[in-house]
Nucleic acid binder design. Sequence first.
DNA 1: GGTATCCGAAACTGACGAGTTCCGTATATA
DNA 2: TATATACGGAACTCGTCAGTTTCGGATACC
Lengths: 218, 218
Amino acid sequence: MPLDLIDSTPAPASPGPGQPGRPGRRRDHSRDPEILDAAIEVLAEEGYDGMTMEMVAARAKAGKATLYRRWPSKGELVVDAVACMKSRDLDVDNLPDTGTLRGDLVAMIKPRTLEEADRKMQVMAGLMSVLSRSPELVDAINSAIVAPRAEVNRRLLERAIARGEISAEVDIATIALVAPSMTAYRLLVTQRPVDREYLLSIIDGVVLPAVGLSAPRA
Amino acid sequence: MPLDLIDSTPAPASPGPGQPGRPGRRRDHSRDPEILDAAIEVLAEEGYDGMTMEMVAARAKAGKATLYRRWPSKGELVVDAVACMKSRDLDVDNLPDTGTLRGDLVAMIKPRTLEEADRKMQVMAGLMSVLSRSPELVDAINSAIVAPRAEVNRRLLERAIARGEISAEVDIATIALVAPSMTAYRLLVTQRPVDREYLLSIIDGVVLPAVGLSAPRA
DNA sequence: GGTATCCGAAACTGACGAGTTCCGTATATA
DNA sequence: TATATACGGAACTCGTCAGTTTCGGATACC
């Protein structure tokens, strides 16, 4: 394995879109998203080492040369693809408010969301063994996958405190990690499905009791 | 990637230690443990795809040919190595009893245990991207790494119920997964250390509140 | 001591994949 | 319509690694 995910050279004074020396310099970046999406798909299915540039090119109906015209290496393509994976999902500043913490948490369980989380975790799994050698990949994954999940829960918990539903003494930071951690573990480690039932057992069996609430008609 | 981790042929009617046709058939399996240990080490450091048979052989001070004399393929060596990784650690039927759930949980935090869990998680990470293609690897990992961790917590929780310290209504199965899930997430996904402090925040911030107990002088 | 067997080391084979080069074509500008 | 550019596709180089073969040396058994 050529384990330098990223070439250490700090970018050759980026030429930019309009190059001086020549008049007609047009670079068509319109197909970049297709390529990045293809990379994510292959990554989720095959993992970093299993993914080949040929697979990505084929999936994006592009030539391998085109990939190398845009990204200097497989590693950089992957980092870019992960960084561009930020979800079309719910945004953190505009979460629906059901009036109760349990309602808010349960409202997060939607097929669309589950499916997207699933995909992200597959990508995660495929990159796992490479993470320890690539700080930039760790960063990309953190801001695209890891951070958003905990942030949502943190907001919901803060709101519950604000409305007086739960005590301000609870360890929000840690509790916000419970669901993300347990779903990731379920999916990655034990290889079992994260379905509505499992999520409800986390909410009603762990999170709510931990903040001093109880599930409805237990 | 040659993604047939295991050759599908079901073992050719295992010759066994004493072969009939020939008189002097001796197979020295005394160095198998060294080789398996070496495999685990390399696996933890490089991941499945990064691990080469040459690395394992060198680490075990053995010849590559010797490896292939004992295991038919890299995949089978890895499955075997993982299966033989069951810890020298505390056994599940003989857990120290401190008299309180918190005491029991905190007593599990020992450098020795942390370190071993760490190693296991590194191996886990290295195998992650391969898991989806190898059911036998999933099984091996489950019984060597995953199951024991939750089992310990389940026992401690049952004991707490038995002594009347916590209610029998709590969702033991799910709560027993909290610590394993959160430590795995911390280590694998967020790449931060699982130290005493983090473990205490799980115990005092999530587990104890979830079962209706509270941390000492919060 | 003779013999059979297993050992570690090293050379070898074959496949595969990253990255490069080349070529015929499509397209946008002029 | 002429020209330049980037395109997809295919052929190429080159390193690496799984798995095999070969060999000289050590060791247990007779």
